[in-house]
């Protein structure tokens, strides 16, 4: 394993290398958000800025379920770690 080139040894290193970059966060309760990561801890508590949250509102119809999407923006946000499902670093394309 070539640790020196990536600097990644354990899972949290992936998040550490995403500090001050825009990350995608998937949360419990059909919520997702992107924001610039400024802080995290071992519980995956996060502090993000310039956040755009997307809430998927699923309503079960007679024939099929419909999904409505609500979006909102927040300046600076603390996210409690127990709601976090995954944190994804920015796509480098």
């Amino acid at each position: 394993m070539d640790v020196s080139s990536t600097g990644i040894q354990e899972p949290f290193d992936l998040i550490r290398l995403s500090l001050s970059e825009r990350v995608f966060v998937k949360l419990r309760g059909d919520r997702e958000m992107t924001g610039i990561l400024h802080a995290y801890d071992g519980h995956m508590n996060l502090i993000l800025s310039d956040v755009e949250e997307t809430i998927m509102i699923v309503s079960e119809g007679e024939q099929q379920a419909t999904v409505n999407v609500a979006k909102r923006k927040m300046d600076m946000l603390f996210v409690r770690g127990d709601g976090v499902i995954l944190v994804s670093p920015p796509s480098r394309t």
Partner: peptide, 21 residues
Amino acid sequence: VRYVQLPAEHVDTQLLEDATR
């Protein structure tokens, strides 16, 4: 608690990132 919205002007982001590292 799910979220806490913080006053951005009172958060030093550079300081936060250094402290997190």
